[in-house]
Write a protein that binds this DNA or RNA. Structure first.
Length: 729
DNA sequence: AGCACGCCGACT
DNA sequence: GTCGGCGTGCTC
């Protein structure tokens, strides 16, 4: 009997080992082992037991030891992880590594073990008398243990370098080490504090979801901003907990998790485990353990939380399911939203995808299964939806990117005591530093991109690679004065401050909200009305509530209108609707102004006439007509190399290899250089595989990727495959 | 990815 | 004379 083991390496295969010496016949897929690997010793995950290997017996080594007494995952989660390695065509070892907290990847025990130091008989009888008078540190430590502080975690703060003293005391036979496995604490109280009264639509949604407990069903909870989606989640989760099962809630990245956790913990007594980027390794492992043991009734986390084991899964929620951060954009490029569906299916539990602006993929799914669509078309508390209108930039004067009608509207809203939100999807002062004399502009030395002017730091920065340079007031080629061209958040801030000097203003973007907790503090100030004007980027569109904002101005809607990426218009519509949703959430109706040079553009017209649903309807028809997802499936082969020709040679060879497989329904587009060909000094190219369904794509990749690995050109490039790519360029 | 082995330049 | 540059080969 042999062991097929996944090892954290970019190689797309399992490695066969003989069982370890301590093998007692009990080994199951999902247990970790220490294995020798080349000259290293690594943690591997047992994937399957095998009767024989493709390799000669002489090449096989024995695994060293078993780490876990039982598998880390239940069968369903194990299958999901394994399946996703196949679906995304990513090396299985890296996939399993991605599914585990760092500490488990490095061999830490999966079960929390508390170390306790207890007095031996000798220690109890002789006590400090056994120690020399100079052994001050040992005396202190022993005294602590004698006074009843026995847990190692508590003893750690008694003196400096505690482990040294503990080891010495143990060596002298005064104390001994015990391992304590803490009892699993079952969730005690699942009651939801003060459930709000539901609207009829919320009631239907809630009853539908809870009625599907115990079966697999993919619900789309399509609720306009402010319609009370969260209340539906909360009450569904309460019922999930009442059945003795756990709920897994996925949220987008960006500092949203703490907010939601706060909202949840204010309403639930059940322990909540959270998983997000702000946590350290120990905290992550704790959350993982509490989820797996069942101690945490609710698990809230970002993308990677989809791999958290659950003792008794009952419900999965994906909030803001359209958010692109659910798709990992490097390495193992999985979609946590799609995996949530795959996982729910394996566990036979319902999954709720919630959004005010669902992705076209999810809308297409809901069209195929109309009974799974749960709509919340109205705002709670009878708040009116915001009124949207366009400002034609061609026929209106503007001051630094802000049109006269927009300024006029701002003035009116401010006079009436409202708050104003200016949305511009561009950080920094200006996107270009230009020389009017000779035409020079500041370029990134490592990317095909212009450097953005940052006034605050007096620097030029590349938003693609992070390169920074001092600001160039004089043109480096002709020594004439340079000029920042275009607008970013910093410049809008400056302009608005000049025009409305009496109105307190705050800028909210990644640069101004660097420090931990800064965003929360600022948002509090906004909602206490200490701020009148907000200028900011995407961050403003992500879930934060601004009940006092009555006017939203979208300063540059045009960026997404003519992009070559077929998803750009979907994203633009989502951003406009999401940012509009920030306006008029209280009793006063909101106003939304969208500045554009293309007021006749069909996308904008649709959006303004019929809202997101009408836009989506039209966009879906367009996608169907053009054979783009969700009416086709894609896989993108990317390659990068220090020389442009190297990447292209590989992609050409890859193209040939794919054609040789002649899978007729798969079309190959490219190879072509990426639109920003050079990034971080690497030249990038790509080859798109397009098929009417996932099946033929899968067949292609199964046969294709092993061939690519063997290509001599493959050694000279870094290549990767992106299944269901979100960003095509 | 690591980590080794393996042949050619500037220096304790 | 060595230390070390990163090319290329391998990991059950």
């Amino acid at each position: 009997m042999l062991l097929g083991i996944a090892i954290d390496t970019p190689l797309r295969r399992l490695f066969d080992y003989r069982p370890p010496a301590d093998y007692d016949g009990k080994l199951e897929p999902g247990q970790r082992l220490w294995v020798p690997f080349g000259r290293r010793r690594l943690v591997g995950v047992l994937i399957e037991k095998r009767a024989q290997s493709d390799l000669p017996a002489s090449k096989l080594r024995a695994a060293e030891s078993v780490i876990d007494p039982v598998p880390l995952f239940d069968r369903e989660l194990f299958d999901l992880i394994r399946w996703s390695a196949g679906y995304y065509h990513h090396p299985p070892g890296e996939v399993f590594a991605a599914a585990l907290p760092t500490l488990l990847r490095s061999g830490q025990p999966a079960e929390a073990v508390e170390i306790e130091w207890r007095l031996t008989d000798v220690g109890r009888n002789e006590g400090a008398a056994a120690l020399g008078s100079r052994a001050q540190r040992l005396r202190t430590m022993l005294a602590a243990i004698m006074s009843g502080t026995t847990r190692e975690s508590a003893l750690a703060s008694v003196i400096a370098r505690p482990s040294e003293a503990l080891r010495e005391l143990a060596k002298r036979g005064l104390i001994e080490r015990h391992e304590i496995r803490p009892e699993i604490v079952a969730p005690t109280d699942s009651a939801l504090e003060s459930a709000l009264e539901l609207t009829p639509e919320q009631r239907v949604a809630l009853d539908s979801i809870t009625g599907s407990f115990g079966t697999f069903k993919t619900w789309l909870l399509h609720g306009v901003t402010g319609s009370g989606k969260t209340e539906v989640y909360l009450q569904a989760i309460a019922q999930c907990l009442a059945r003795g099962t756990q709920a897994l809630v996925l949220v987008p990245e960006i500092a949203l998790t703490p907010q939601l956790v706060q909202r949840f913990s204010a309403r639930f007594h059940a322990p909540i485990a959270t998983v997000h980027s702000g946590m350290n390794d120990t905290e992550r492992l704790d959350a993982w353990r509490n989820a797996r043991s069942g101690a945490a009734g609710i698990v809230i986390g970002t993308r990677s939380a989809i791999f958290t084991p659950l003792a008794k899964p009952g419900l999965i929620v994906v909030d803001e399911e359209h958010d692109p951060s659910f798709k990992q954009q490097e390495g193992f490029r999985y979609s946590a939203r799609d995996l949530a569906i795959a996982r729910a299916q394996r566990h036979s539990v319902p999954v709720v995808l919630g959004s005010a602006t669902p992705s076209l993929e999810t809308l297409a799914r809901a069209r195929r299964e109309p009974q799974t669509l749960l709509s919340l078309p109205r705002r709670a508390g009878n708040a009116e939806p915001p009124r949207m209108s366009l400002i034609d930039l061609r026929h209106n004067a503007q001051t630094q990117g802000i049109s006269t009608p927009a300024l006029q509207a701002m003035r009116e809203h401010l006079e009436r005591g409202g708050q104003v939100l200016l949305f511009i999807n561009r950080r920094g002062y200006a996107p270009v530093l230009f020389c009017p004399n000779c035409g020079w502009s500041a370029q990134c030395p490592r990317c095909d991109a212009r450097l953005t002017v940052h006034r605050r730091t007096h620097e030029l920065a590349c938003h693609h690679c992070g390169t920074q340079q001092p600001y160039a007031a004089k043109c480096p080629t002709c020594s004439q004065p340079t000029k920042p061209v275009g607008q970013g958040t910093e410049r809008i801030e400056e302009t608005i401050q000049q025009i409305f000097p009496q109105a307190p203003l705050v800028r909210i973007d990644r640069d101004s909200m660097r420090r931990r907790g800064e965003l929360e503090t600022t948002l509090d100030r906004v909602n206490r009305a200490e701020v009148k004007i907000l200028v900011g980027t995407q961050i403003l569109t992500k879930g934060h509530h601004f009940p006092l904002v009555t006017l939203v101005v979208v300063l540059n809607a045009d960026q997404g209108l003519f992009s070559s990426d077929f998803r750009a218009s979907e994203r633009l519509a989502q951003i406009i609707v999401q940012v509009s949703g920030r306006a008029g959430r209280a009793e006063r109706p909101g106003q939304v102004l969208i500045q554009t040079e293309y007021p006749k553009h069909p996308l904008l017209a649709r959006l303004l006439d019929g809202g997101y649903d009408a836009f989506a309807e039209a966009a879906l028809r367009e996608r169907e007509h053009a054979h783009w997802p969700p009416y086709a499936r894609l896989a993108l082969l990317r390659a990068e190399a220090p020389q442009p020709a190297t990447a292209m040679r590989f992609l050409d060879a890859a193209h040939q290899a794919a054609e040789a497989l002649s899978i007729r329904t798969v079309r190959l587009l490219g190879p072509a250089p990426a639109p920003m060909e050079r990034r971080l000094g690497q030249y990038r190219g790509q080859l798109l595989a397009h098929a009417p369904a996932h099946g033929p794509l899968q067949r292609l990749m199964d046969a294709w990727l092993p061939k690519l690995e063997a290509l001599p050109e493959a050694k000279r490039v870094r290549w990767s495959i992106d299944v269901d790519p979100l960003e095509l360029f």
